[in-house]
Simulated scan of single mutants.
Amino acid sequence: MQQKLIKNDSLTARVYFETNYVWSQIKKISRVFERKRKIKGIKMKDVEKTIGNLIDKVGVSFIGSIDSEGFPNMKAMLPPRKREGIKYIYFTTNTSSMRVSQYKENPKASIYFCDKRFFRGVMLKGTMEVLEDSDSKNMIWREGDTMYYPLGLTDPDYCVLRFTAHKGRFYSNFKSEDFDINDIQCVH
């Protein structure tokens, strides 16, 4: 009986040792996964270049605003006229539009660009300013804009929307990656 008890004690000690070893390995693995989870997603090599190329290739942009009841509103737009990195993106629109009045009331905004061929896209969150000064209007005016703004650069129904990105989310290959604009080096 004494011998059997000693044998059981050594078995218990071995099980205890192996269990602790397994748990220590699980903890190591979980720390690795936790670090990877904090890194998030697909890990773009050059966020600004990847997102900038996507923006430059799209034919349609989507802009979001918040209405007076607090609901999000989306609208398809022509591609941006100008961008400074991916932090500042410029659009033209009519001063009399519903979107302009919404941005003046609440500047929170989002914009979305998608590449339907490769099924990838980016959503940028930030703020939208309505610019009506002549320098801003001149900066993005193009030949042929009189089709939309018959009175030209001085048309009171012509204004510039300047989007300032704060954060973004990129989707590609069934994975998403969040990024903060201040964490990347943007060209201005």
Rank of each mutant, 00 (worst) to 15 (best):
G64L: 13
S68Y: 03
F17V: 10
T154G: 07
S30V: 04
L5P: 02
K104S: 02
Y171C: 02
R120Q: 11
G126A: 12
S10E: 07
S24T: 04
E69Q: 11
D145R: 02
M128C: 13
H166C: 06
K104G: 03
R142K: 14
S136C: 15
F119E: 05
T127L: 12
C114Y: 03
G168I: 05
G52I: 05
M139Y: 02
T146P: 01
V32W: 10
K57L: 03
A165Y: 00
D178L: 12
T93P: 01
S30L: 14
E48M: 10
P80E: 00
K38I: 07
G126H: 08
I184F: 10
G168H: 01
K7E: 10
N53P: 05
S136V: 11
V47R: 02
P107V: 01
E34H: 08
E48Q: 09
Y171W: 09
K4W: 11
K45R: 12
M77C: 14
N53K: 14
R169A: 14
T12I: 15
R162G: 00
E34F: 04
E18N: 14
M147F: 06
A76Y: 02
I184A: 09
N53S: 09
I184H: 08
I42S: 13
Y103C: 01
K36E: 15
K57W: 02
N106A: 01
W23V: 13
V60L: 10
P79Y: 08
K27N: 03
G52M: 08
D67S: 09
F113G: 05
K43Q: 11
T95K: 10
G59N: 15
K7S: 08
M128Q: 05
P150Q: 12
M98I: 09
D9E: 07
V160G: 00
R35V: 07
L131C: 14
Y148S: 15
E34G: 12
R35L: 11
G152A: 14
E48S: 02
S96K: 09
T154Y: 08
M77T: 06
E132V: 12
R14E: 10
V58T: 03
A76K: 05
N94E: 09
E132A: 11
S176E: 14
G144L: 13
G41C: 15
R142M: 13
T50N: 01
D9F: 15
V22W: 01
G144S: 12
K116M: 05
R14Y: 09
Q185V: 15
A13S: 12
K36T: 10
Y158V: 01
K45W: 01
L124Y: 05
K4Q: 11
S97V: 08
D183F: 11
A109M: 07
C186W: 10
F118Q: 12
R81I: 00
Y90S: 06
V122F: 08
N20T: 02
Y16Q: 10
V47S: 05
K116A: 04
T19D: 02
S134C: 03
P156R: 07
T154N: 14
F170G: 00
T50W: 13
G52F: 04
A165L: 04
C114P: 00
R162P: 01
V60G: 03
R81N: 00
R142L: 14
Y158S: 03
Y112S: 13
D133K: 06
I111T: 00
R120F: 12
S101V: 12
D56C: 12
D46W: 08
V58S: 03
